[in-house]
Design a protein around this nucleic acid. Structure first.
Lengths: 188, 188
DNA sequence: CGGACCGTTGAAAGGTGTCAAGTTGCGTGG
DNA sequence: CCACGCAACTTGACACCTTTCAACGGTCCG
């Protein structure tokens, strides 16, 4: 779906992963978030979408027409409550991302990014965790407000420091979660 | 209110203006938004606030205890709908801010900022508009992901170009809205 | 085998940050 | 009434992190 297009549908993701982004006229892209199974898409008010979205891998979604969906929500307080709750979480995540984009260095951004991906177990803060990266380097760069080159260089630096290892371009192992977390908070 | 504190209240702003922000441990600050009369504050889920907020000038708010407020919302579908709608708008604004912080240059950020302040009349796109700046340079800098020095330099550059004029530090006149808008979109 | 895409690495350029100093405006107190 | 101190703002010089530009190797696939 494209920013500016008429917005007749709401989607719920069944499988796969999507990137949500906004563009400037000259092509500069900012990815505002990645979506995975269970996430909703296209809820915003208004007649047209305010952002674009694309699948990053083969994905399936459940599509609702907006009118009936709105009616359903309006008649189901629990559902509306669920949506409100999810939207608050999304807003809190957006604020964290603003902090990242406005005030963190490249390595701090990457460290923060790795912690929000599934694969980290908060119950075992120092246990290494494996992370799947369904997105390409360019997607990570446009999500973190960097260039692909910088993303690549930062990953190399982390590898050299022993913070992570990279078995393949789409897999990453966090070797030292506690030190990576310090980086994410700018405490190094 | 401070990030991390217990969150027993929800606020609605009556008069004045507030800044909402997040901090890194070393003191770096990112202002995620400015709030004005009519805006809600502290709606997010959870036991504690996920950001801090301060008044920028003498302000008054209407304070609700969270429990009763939630109950009120739950029993009033129109109210919940209103909150959901506002939150979507806030989320859309946050996505625009991510684009700004991740991909725009200093002058583009400042131009974008000036357009989201009250004082611009969309019905007369080329008419000069006066803008009140209740926040200090440091607040603008922390909102745009810049430093005070860069904010000051960009304003000077805009002044030299004839895009704006600055009668006093807290007042600003947009002289060439159409050219400023081009800057905001990176079309220069 | 050739080509497209992706990721990595190097060298140089540049925009913004850092550090420092100077100016202005204003409230306070002598 | 004026000197003083302070905070906010501006300006300059320089440093540095990230970007830009370029080249190279690897993988997949026609």
């Amino acid at each position: 779906m494209r920013e500016g297009d008429a917005a007749p549908y709401v989607f719920n993701i069944t499988t796969g992963s999507l990137r949500v982004y906004k563009l400037l006229p000259d092509g500069r892209r900012q990815i505002t978030g990645f979506l995975f199974a269970g996430d909703f898409l296209g809820l915003a008010v208004g007649e047209s979408y305010v952002f674009s979205a694309e699948a990053m891998e083969p994905s399936t979604v459940c599509r609702f027409r907006k009118g009936p969906f709105r009616a359903l929500v309006a008649h189901s307080p629990p559902l509306e409550h669920l949506l409100l709750d999810r939207t608050y979480r999304e807003l809190a995540a957006a604020q964290n991302q603003m902090l990242l984009l406005g005030r963190k260095t490249a390595i701090e951004r990457m460290a923060s990014f790795l912690f929000e991906l599934p694969g980290y177990d908060p119950a075992r803060p120092s246990a290494p965790g494996q992370v799947r990266l369904p997105m390409k380097r360019g997607d990570i760069a446009d999500y973190l407000g960097l260039t692909v080159e910088t993303v690549s260089r930062v990953l190399t630096r982390m590898k050299v420091k022993g913070l992570i290892s990279i078995p393949s371009p789409n897999e990453l192992i966090v070797e030292r979660p506690e030190r990576l977390r310090q980086h994410a908070l700018g405490e190094v």
